[in-house]
Design a protein around this nucleic acid. Structure first.
Lengths: 162, 162
DNA sequence: TCAGAAAGTAAGCCTTGGCTAAGTTTAGAG
DNA sequence: CTCTAAACTTAGCCAAGGCTTACTTTCTGA
């Protein structure tokens, strides 16, 4: 069954005295994080634009700026980038639209975000903390971990149904 | 008991049709993530320096570069920054040392890192994925979530003892 | 002991993602 | 209809964190 969930048992809490990982593996870990950083912001913007389109019918630069907590100028510049990356289409002074690729990115980000958020809540984290943590964590969770989170959510749901 | 662990039950998996959070809250979420980004790299370097000092007895720029997967020049520049921030002390062409503040940051980062890593493994994530995810996640996990993770680890340990 | 390799530094370049200030366009209220 | 406020864009600034290339210092082994 794909939604089986079995914790694997805890290990001794002693990584700080563990040997360092081999140099190449260590370097790959950091490379993955740097890589994630490059796409992170882009994904956040695209995800937000998708949400605004879904919930408000349009995505205006002013709304994006207010929700991101940055200046309109910053948003304007970022929109140019998203355009170059062919994630959005825009006409000057007009609302934005997502391209096919933009829509795909938005829904994928949204899905990851939701899974992480629900996982944290299912684990017992408060709503406020879960929201903030999910925002930061979503870009650093592998498909494998995401899968485990989904199974955990499903298992917890079955449990609470009795 | 402080190490009690009770899952809180899953919610309907439907945040994508949830209303958007209030503007101010939304902005605060992103601000927190941006904030984390600023300290993230610094913490990674300091944590690595601490690990090298612990496991190798010294922290050389060449080792840091190899493990971070960046050029020596990049490390050299970063060391200057860490110096300015009074996290390390260094004499030209010599190995590094952590200041009191640096040591504190290193051990705190190391601890968060370990908790996240052990949590992921306890959850059933493979070692490789857990390592990579932990590296990225550690900077985005609130104290509250960290606490929940620790209780989960403890609970899973008791369970597997039988 | 000293010459070449390895380690470290410095200078200067690039991109990203913030900002402010100043100008342009759009939209809505009177 | 028009004029002002809000929305948007542009230009130009800054810091961070990469890079390469060129130089200096240290270490080591023949």
């Amino acid at each position: 069954m794909s939604h089986d969930f079995k914790p694997q048992g805890a290990f001794a809490h002693s990584a700080s005295v563990d040997a360092l990982p081999p140099v190449e593996q260590h370097a790959r870990q950091y490379a993955t994080v740097r890589q994630a950083h490059e796409t992170e912001l882009i994904e956040d913007y695209v995800e937000l634009i998708g949400d605004l389109l879904t919930h408000r019918g349009e995505a205006r630069a002013a709304d994006i700026a207010a929700r991101m907590g940055v200046s309109q100028a910053t948003v304007s510049k970022m929109i140019r980038r998203l355009n170059e990356l062919e994630l959005v289409t825009s006409r000057p002074y007009r609302s934005l639209f997502l391209t096919r690729a933009g829509k795909a990115m938005a829904s994928q980000s949204r899905e990851r975000h939701d899974i992480v958020l629900h996982f944290l809540r299912a684990l017992g984290v408060s709503d406020d903390a879960a929201r903030i943590d999910a925002e930061g964590m979503e870009h650093h969770v592998s498909d494998e971990t995401l899968d485990v989170m989904q199974r955990y959510i499903a298992a917890t749901a079955r449990q609470s149904e009795g």
